[in-house]
């Protein structure tokens, strides 16, 4: 499996240190791999470590105050061992990233054209004029109307959706083999979200770029990801192919999340079944399963022994002592 992988994340651990406070492990032994042309989702609620995972992969965490352990192997090179300058070389060329808030990720005083062409000048060594022409092509490709005029405009002159497209154009400028999109549509309206998701799906299909999609929205995952990792309190609690995950969620947390979302096509008036408590309830924990205090399936063993990641179903992984049993499985 890992021989095919473009990116192989093994036992990634990120610990934050603060003076006078106990070290906090935001990401705890996360492993997954991404193959070219595949979309892998990292899903979870606030504080589950999904964004820290992506920052660690991109080498964007501060050098001081954060310890990163494990390995992030990209085409045979462990990115965590690279120097800051070598990593800078990789970012933008091999690895692209799209952030949640396009306004704060764009420089407000530099024109869109310059921001996109800068990437091309820096990594592909194109002269300014050529880079500008290519930048216009890129903007056109991501669906920005009248790209030539947009080149000389500034971020505040673009709408939210257009800004996100510009950001995607920048991330794609050097045809990276891996694109990380961290909540790419969370700040956008649904109709614009649909446009951006369609654009991302098209890019993966046409260029064979691998995509890591980080989101809290299970609906977005259902439409776009091939494989889904559900994170809770810094750990992957369940991994499955998307059809399996949504049809037969095995971890009580995944199950609880799905049951608590009102669905557009579900029965109306039915009461939602929320996960009790909130994420804060389990931090800090010393032993056992982090989800145990909120889990309807919790046993005594859950509070004492940390569950290991075990294979579950075809291609699935699960970290749970007492998973949800689906009746059709029992009879089958």
């Amino acid at each position: 499996m890992s021989s095919l992988a473009l990116l192989d994340v093994r036992d990634l651990t990120v610990t934050f240190h603060r003076k006078g406070a106990r070290p906090f492990t935001a990401v705890d032994g996360v492993s997954f791999d991404v193959e070219p042309g595949r979309t892998v989702g990292l899903v979870g609620e606030s504080g589950c470590g999904k964004s820290v995972t992506s920052l660690a992969i991109m080498g964007l965490l501060p050098r001081r105050g954060a310890t990163v352990g494990g390995s992030v192997t990209f085409e045979g090179t462990d990115l965590l061992t690279l120097s800051a300058s070598a990593m800078r070389e990789r970012r933008g060329r091999d690895l692209g990233m799209v952030f949640q808030d396009p306004l704060s990720s764009l420089n407000p005083v530099v024109s869109i054209g310059l921001q996109v062409s800068e990437v091309l000048e820096r990594h592909r060594g194109l002269p300014r004029k050529k880079a500008m022409v290519e930048a216009a092509d890129l903007l056109d490709k991501v669906g920005i109307p009248d790209p030539r005029r947009r080149l000389s405009e500034y971020p505040h002159q673009l709408s939210g959706g257009m800004r996100q497209r510009a950001l995607i154009a920048m991330a794609l400028a050097c045809r990276p083999r891996l694109l990380i999109a961290d909540e790419p549509t969370t700040a956008l309206d649904v109709t614009i979200q649909a446009q951006i998701l369609a654009l991302l799906a098209e890019l993966v299909r046409d260029t064979g770029t691998a995509l890591i999609l980080i989101t809290h929205d299970l609906g977005v995952v259902a439409g776009l990801c091939d494989e889904v990792n559900v994170l809770y309190a810094g750990r992957v609690v369940e991994r499955a192919e998307r059809h399996a995950l949504f049809a037969r969620p095995r971890h009580p947390y995944t199950n609880g999340l799905l049951a608590s979302i009102p669905r557009l096509d579900g029965a109306r008036g039915e009461r939602l079944r929320p996960v009790r408590g909130s994420v804060n309830d389990n931090i800090p924990w010393r032993s056992g399963c982090a989800f145990a205090p909120r889990c309807p399936n919790a046993l005594d063993v859950c509070r004492l022994v940390t569950p290991e990641m075990v294979a579950d179903g075809p291609g699935g992984l699960l970290r749970c002592h007492n998973p949800v049993v689906h009746t059709e499985e029992v009879t089958a």
Partner: peptide, 26 residues
């Protein structure tokens, strides 16, 4: 268009759905 744009947390439904993608912005 608005309703067709809302993602549904069910891959089986998502694969079958037809989206009405609106062009442009408000």
């Amino acid at each position: 268009a608005l309703l067709s744009a809302v993602p549904v947390p069910d891959p089986a439904v998502e694969d079958r759905r037809e989206r009405i993608l609106l062009a442009g912005d408000l």
